[in-house]
Design a protein around this nucleic acid. Structure first.
Length: 859
RNA sequence: GGGCUUGUAGCUCAGUUUGGCUGGAGCGUUCGGCUGAUAACCGAAAGGUCGAGAGUUCAAAUCUCUCCAGGCCCA
């Protein structure tokens, strides 16, 4: 809705067979390189719904629940009186306990309690003793966590679980390990680890290559391997475990605790973490290549780069299997007889190898795909498909190859530029990279540049959410504000990687002003250019140069434009859109609208055929400048650009391309650059406000012409002003100028002054009759102009007569020499001034001039 | 709890990489002015513990450490 170019003919759908077949090619490459295989993964599982939940789903269901709070002890092997003190809210996990963890860097102590020695974190001694209501205890030794590593403990339920007795033979099982994640600020600072029932636990075990002990089935019931606990639902064994520990004298305290714990968002049952059989891409094996590929990408900003690289460096295996119905199937078949596995990556091959096929016309989805039985190459047995579908991130990460043909893939991948929001660091940015490295076998990303963009927040910097009611609805927004102003605001306000506080009020402020000014500049240009029959094909800049009708302001404007094109392009290419747009903003609002237009206004305010070429030169300058601005802003404001292109540029030059999008990107023209001239204008534009300030100090309106100004400035500034004197005098509305190095001796009462830095400007306060008359004429002309506009005349209309009444005789006298000039200025055939309101064909309008009433009428 | 990141005027942002003069801009506010492209514009004024604290240094918004608060991702 905000404007996108989409090639609908090239749309791709990840559920189509041809996409799936090509996606499978990635898996095939992984399979061939031994990068795809079976493993275990600890997932959140809802025992009621009998399904695993994604992380996002887990996040949905945090609730306060009640759980057992069990303090217990593990006896140190060979030391009947020495124990590790441990706390858990899930007693059932003692069944799958394999190791206990301490933090290597933290202090632990041995505490004498009656005849026993207990080991726990130093800082937890007091709170734990309080909980256990033990008053007499003595710290007898302090040691670092790492000193405990390797200590073997007696696994308490060995007699009930024969498999645990078997595992106990392993040198690392039932020993203390060191893990940074162990927190010594809560509980006892010692954790027991059940790798089958916790993610941290699992990775700690995997790191040490421990065998997995996961004695439960798909329904979360303990299997025979769990010995006495077999057949029970895992969580139901909590109380059994508590009882067994108590019988063995290992239970210290059993209570209840309320805490935040994830529950199933559907059934509200407490989730259980369980190791389940899954398929993995062993990206850890190709981490070096992945890192090399990632380092070659340009990210434009350091923070998203650091974040992406840090994430990739973890090199975690990618679990790609999902237990769902919808999704692209995992194309792995397993032999029921010999356990042989095969990966089949095309429909054709499936047909060839099949023992059984579904209907003639099947698609590559459940349930059809599960009905395909293959013949085992090894033993000719029946092979059935692994029931998994693929992680959706695998689908999207496969797009570079899957969506294109081989030829297109060769030509278009790696692509130049991709952009996504920062949350896609672990999403698309990652999956695209991993799959491409696997597919090509090369340390190369499928994108050369990747811009990770920040999030949009509400005006106060809060996350947008339905519950807060601060969600911005784009449809509503677009009813009131254009897509372009929204786009401009997005890119202009802040760096694309920062999160952005979106404020409607702000959008209506400066962004509106910039676009509105650009639009009105075109209006202004069209009004005048059409009136003078400007023809862009004939009246080019080259023509204007040849006719010698380009003046300093035009050349200054054009020089500044080249700088803008260069800077804007550079910033945009670096994705510093906010800086690019603030350059554009400055050029449109300040340089062009506020500074250039007043410089050429007088040239345009004339019908004189003698000066037509000068006016045409201004139009050629504006044509070139405005068109360049429209092209620069086109990526940001495509609708406005197109509208202006059609109604202004194509209107005056029908030979132009069909759309603004067919135009080339502007490049700076060094021939038009003039640093010296820019410097001179810089001085002029610094001097004028000082002069205006001096005027203001003496209450001398800008409309009133003054006799003389004296500028005290460094030599360089003096010469610049002398060079641009005609323009300076006109903009200053002063008849003559003098320049000095130091303040001359003048009558301080006669001269108004203002200064800034090395610059001081004096203006002559004394106005003779002629200056007063001209000033009065311009005051009155201003009133007439306002009235003309109010009455609906267009600027080019010529009115029959203008009447001004209730003027003093002296004023009428002063005005006389300037009536002709006023007639030209207000475009009237005749200007009449009266002492009283006379009978005329039009209505009199009251106005105020320096607190006195005047009456104006236009016929 | 971990990683990345942000904190500068009433608001929105520059400036921090490479320490250096009195910390800037736009918007907003107040007063005055200007305006036949403009919903604009010009002049002046008020407005700052540069998130807090400590350290390094002749010198810190800028470098280091700790803390506080916000954001994203993960746990």
């Amino acid at each position: 809705m905000l404007g996108l170019f989409i090639d609908h003919d090239k749309a791709y759908y990840t559920h189509e067979d041809r996409y799936i077949e090509r996606e499978w090619q990635y898996l095939k490459r992984a399979w061939e390189q031994n990068l795809l295989g079976e493993g275990h993964y600890v997932v959140a599982y809802c025992p009621h719904c009998q399904t695993s939940l994604s992380n996002a789903e887990v996040g949905l269901g945090y609730k306060e629940v009640e759980d057992p709070s069990m303090h217990f002890k593990f006896q140190v092997k060979g030391k009947p009186d020495e124990y590790f003190v441990v706390w858990t809210t899930m007693p059932f996990t003692i069944i799958t306990d394999l190791i206990i963890g301490v933090n290597p860097k933290q202090d632990y102590v041995k505490v004498q309690v009656e005849n026993e020695t207990w080991i726990l974190a130093k800082q937890r001694v007091e709170p734990i003793m309080e909980i256990l209501e033990i008053e007499n205890y003595k710290i007898i030794k302090t040691l670092k966590g790492k000193e405990l590593v390797g200590t073997k403990y007696e696994y308490p339920l060995m007699d009930l679980i024969p498999k645990q007795a078997e595992l106990d033979q392993h040198p690392l099982i039932h020993t203390v390990v060191a893990e940074e994640f162990v927190d010594v600020t809560t509980a006892t600072g010692i954790v027991h680890l059940a790798p089958a029932n916790g993610e941290d636990d699992y990775s700690a075990a995997q790191k040490r290559e421990l065998p997995l002990f996961a004695p439960f089935d798909e329904q979360a019931l303990f299997t025979e391997e769990a010995g006495n606990f077999a057949g029970h639902f895992v969580r139901k064994t909590d109380s059994m475990v508590v009882e067994e520990l108590e019988n063995r004298g290992l239970l210290l305290k059993i209570g209840k605790v309320k805490h935040e714990y994830p529950t199933c968002w559907r059934s509200h049952h407490k989730l259980v973490w369980m190791a389940r059989r899954e398929y993995f891409i062993w990206t850890n094996k190709i981490n070096k290549k992945v890192m090399e590929a990632a380092h070659k990408v340009k990210y434009f900003y350091d923070s998203p780069k650091n974040r992406f690289l840090a994430f990739l460096k973890e090199g975690k295996p990618w679990c790609i299997s999902r237990d769902r119905v919808w999704g692209s199937p995992l194309p792995i078949w397993v032999c029921e007889e010999c356990g042989e596995k095969t990966l089949v990556a095309t429909k054709q091959e499936l047909r060839e190898k099949a023992l059984e096929l579904p209907d003639k016309d099947f698609e590559l989805h459940k349930p059809w795909i599960d009905r395909i039985i293959l013949k085992c190459d090894k033993c000719s047995g029946r092979m059935v498909r692994e029931p998994f579908v693929l992680d959706v991130w695998h689908n999207s990460g496969a797009s570079p190859y899957a969506r294109f043909t081989d030829q297109e893939f060769k030509e278009l991948v790696p692509t130049n530029f991709l952009t996504e929001a920062v949350d896609q660091t672990r999403g698309w940015g990652n999956s695209l990279l991993l799959e491409h490295v696997i597919y090509t076998g090369k340390p190369e990303a499928p994108y050369e540049e990747f811009l990770f963009q920040g999030f949009v927040l509400d005006a106060k910097g809060r996350k947008m959410s339905k519950s807060l009611g601060n969600v911005l609805e784009i449809n509503k927004l677009l009813q009131e504000r254009s897509a372009d102003i929204t786009r401009f605001y997005f890119l202009w306000k802040c760096s694309p990687i920062d999160s952005m506080n979106f404020d409607l009020k702000e959008l209506r402020g400066r962004p509106y002003q910039v676009l509105s000014t650009l639009y009105h500049l075109h209006n202004f240009f069209m009004q005048n250019a059409k009136y003078d029959n400007f023809d862009p094909q004939t009246h080019t800049l080259t023509w204007a140069t040849q006719q010698n009708v380009l003046n300093a302001p035009d050349m200054w404007l054009l020089s500044k434009l080249q700088k803008l094109v260069r800077e804007y392009t550079n910033k945009a290419e670096e994705c510093e859109f906010n800086f690019a747009l603030s350059q554009l903003e400055d050029y449109v609002v300040n340089i062009l609208s506020r500074e250039y237009v007043p410089m050429i206004r007088k040239d345009l305010w004339s019908d004189d055929p003698q000066t037509l070429n000068r006016r045409l030169a201004v139009y050629s300058t504006l044509w070139y400048t405005l068109k360049t601005l429209v092209l620069l802003s086109n990526p940001v404001t495509p609708f406005l650009s197109e509208a202006l292109y059609q109604t202004v540029y194509k209107e005056l030059d029908p030979n132009l391309a069909e759309t603004v999008n067919m135009e080339n990107w502007p490049t700076p023209d060094t021939d038009l650059e003039d640093d010296a001239l820019e410097e001179e204008f810089e001085i002029l534009l610094q001097t004028l406000p000082v002069l205006y300030s001096a005027r203001q100090n003496a209450q001398l309106k800008r409309r009133w012409p003054l006799a003389k100004t004296i500028v005290i400035a460094p030599k360089k500034a003096q010469s610049a002003l002398k060079k641009l004197e005609e323009l300076f005098l006109e903009l200053a509305n002063v008849k003559t100028a003098e320049y000095a190095d130091t303040l001359p001796e003048v009558d301080p009462d006669r001269w108004a002054t203002a200064s800034e830095d090395e610059l001081q400007v004096l203006v002559d306060k004394i106005r003779d009759d002629s200056l007063e008359g001209e000033g009065l004429m311009r005051d009155l002309a201003r009133r007439v102009q306002a009235l003309r506009k109010e009455l609906g005349f267009s600027p080019t209309d010529i009115v029959d007569a203008v009447h001004i009444a209730e003027l003093e005789p002296k004023a009428i006298e002063l005005l006389k020499p300037f009536i002709d000039e006023m007639e030209a200025l207000v475009r009237a055939k005749k200007v009449n001034v009266h002492e009283q309101q006379v009978e005329i064909k039009a209505d009199w309008h009251e106005d105020k001039l320096d607190k006195k009433k005047v009456y104006v009428a236009v016929v």
